[in-house]
Design a protein around this nucleic acid. Structure first.
Lengths: 350, 350
DNA sequence: ATTAGCACTTAGAGGTTAAGAGTGCTAACA
DNA sequence: TGTTAGCACTCTTAACCTCTAAGTGCTAAT
């Protein structure tokens, strides 16, 4: 279910060490203050002494799960510790009925058109987690086309409307020869409609004009439409959504302007957000990436939790939350899972 | 040409005072450091002594144009000073040919559809000024409708496409009775098309169904379309664009997290941005609002410079730059004016 | 294996000082 | 009367010191 960049970190820790590590991460996520042996005994482990815990902490540090800012400070979890926490230690959170009702309300209110749904998704995620959220709708080739329509709004320009199994696309344009009559255009619409119906984007983009013999003289229109579709598949810029960028400032690790700058420069750049969300693996449901390991776009000391939503095997989109490594993973994973369920049910019914 | 919230501030300042005030604002905008009498003599006024300038500065402070942070600091311009600066003192800036070419290039590259133009406008403004930019496209009632089309993409849902003299609107939806045939729908399209053609949004929204007798039985569709149009006129949320939010961090006055927070909470809220940009006066070309006087949405110590672009008397949109009071007004005004010229020429040709 | 006790380390808060920048004022000057 | 040199005064800022509180590591006893 949960994977980290492909590889699972194998661990051999005593149950007590795991428990202690869990408490350290829990507490650190909650308080943002390095966790001391004393606070652990007081809050969670009254039966053992702080000295014992100190030994364990020391061992966990040796193993690379904890670090100290200086010799006399408490311990802070390392990136490794967070990974282990999310995959094994963390107790799964449940959303309150209030929160669930909120999600349902928002989605049922405005499920009319896809733009609204996309925006709402990002908004809901950001609201509930109190982290900035990012999202893209996928333009994957597996979606089947149901219908296609041209709307000529200027003598030489037409809007291409495409209905697929999940959505209505209305941002593609083609040039139309000025001398073409409206009748000819609507005939070409029919010809291409028949050709495209039931086929996926991928299949259509790979059609060889020379192999098809039923163009009825509308080959130039066909070529233009294919061009439009190809460029639609290439650029997904317009489908990038970000919400709640300002929420990052509420977290104490962003007390430093240069960090905020760094962070915002990623989140406000559609290109970078897109890169972040598109290189996801295939069938991964929830995915946790931590800034330290090789993701250029994620600022160091940042963490990205994403969920990919599918309907009938087609990737519909990827949404996620980006924030400090010290992130409330319990909440974030719970929100993403629940939003995912509702989103998938809405989109599958279309 | 330049107005401040309606009223001009009348001033009686000696030429020398004006010159000195101009230098103070110039220098403060450039350096962000309180301006001292010594630096003024050295940089601009070698012929008079610093003591003389001190007297003048003292007088300007008395008049409310300058303030001191503490007894032994240099002077900082007041909001009044900035207003005077923009309206009278400031030397108008010219953009370099490089910058002008950049603007032209961006707009000519992708002038296909309005969404692109809107985004590009905000982007160009933000890039060239290095402040965050905000923009809305106006939904004013004076625009004439040229054509209307329905596209039924689900049995009970249709997309309403509207061509106006300036743009193509494609974000309105109506419900269609399931039992209505496609032929009936396209007939209703023709009927309504004839009714709407040449009329403005305003006129159409005020049409009384009972006064028209040529509905040919499509009154329910008519009512739905009117509803869609009205709600389109009401909510302009989706047309709000912001770009370069992160640029605010480059300015030293935003060294304080709480200020950034305050600022971002405005700029990331579409509602607030819309409010900011819609209460503009009627025929104002370039407009400067300074946070201190009664604009709730503008954070104190912020300044908003906007330009409203029109074509044939119709307000097409308002774009602007939001930043610290200590803003490079010369650059900002120059950029807004130039972008405006190009934008208006593009949109008028449509 | 656990734990009490203690020495050791470090960050951070508070206080003091000295330097530097800038003003306001006064008295002299053109 | 407007300008200017000179000087006392004010205020900020950085540097330095000191002290405290928090937390650890280690040792020796249980």
């Amino acid at each position: 279910m949960l994977t980290f960049n492909g590889w699972e970190c194998q661990v051999e820790l005593s149950d007590r060490k795991k428990k202690i590590l869990q408490y350290v991460v829990d507490d650190y996520i909650e308080t943002a203050v390095p966790v001391s042996s004393k606070s652990l005994t007081e809050r969670h482990l009254q039966t053992i002494s702080s000295a014992t815990i100190r030994n364990e902490l020391s061992a966990l540090e040796e193993l690379g799960y904890l670090t100290q800012l200086h010799t006399s400070s408490g311990r802070v979890p390392s990136a490794e510790a967070y990974k282990l926490y999310v995959s094994e230690l963390m107790v799964k959170d449940k959303l309150s009925t209030k929160e669930l009702d909120y999600i349902k309300k928002i989605f049922l209110e405005k499920a009319d058109n896809l733009e609204e749904v996309i925006k709402n998704t990002a908004k809901v995620i950001s609201e509930l987690t109190s982290y900035p959220s990012v999202g893209i709708t996928s333009r994957n080739g597996g979606e089947k086309i149901e219908n296609i329509k041209f709307f000529r709004y200027r003598p030489d320009q037409a809007l291409v409307l495409i209905v697929t199994e999940y959505r209505l696309l209305k941002d593609n344009y083609i040039t139309v020869p000025k001398e073409m009559t409206d009748e000819q255009l609507s005939e070409s619409e029919k010809v291409l409609g028949n050709m495209f119906k039931g086929r996926t984007f991928e299949e259509i983009c790979n059609l060889k004009p020379e192999l098809e013999d039923d163009f009825m003289g509308y080959k130039n229109i066909f070529v233009n439409v294919i061009e439009a579709l190809k460029s639609y598949m290439r650029y997904a810029d317009s489908d990038v959504v970000t919400e709640g960028e300002d929420k990052i400032l509420e977290h104490p690790e962003y007390a430093d302007i240069s960090k905020i700058k760094n962070f915002l420069s990623v989140v406000t750049s559609k290109d970078k957000v897109m890169n972040l969300l598109t290189d996801d693996g295939k069938d991964i449901k929830i995915n946790v990436k931590i800034g330290t390991d090789g993701y250029d776009e994620i600022p160091k000391d940042c963490s990205l939790v994403t969920a990919t939503y599918t309907a009938n095997g087609n990737k519909l989109g990827t949404y996620g939350v980006i924030g400090p490594i010290r992130m409330d993973y319990q909440k974030v994973v719970a929100v993403l899972e629940n939003v995912g369920k509702i989103l998938e049910s809405i989109l599958s019914n279309k």
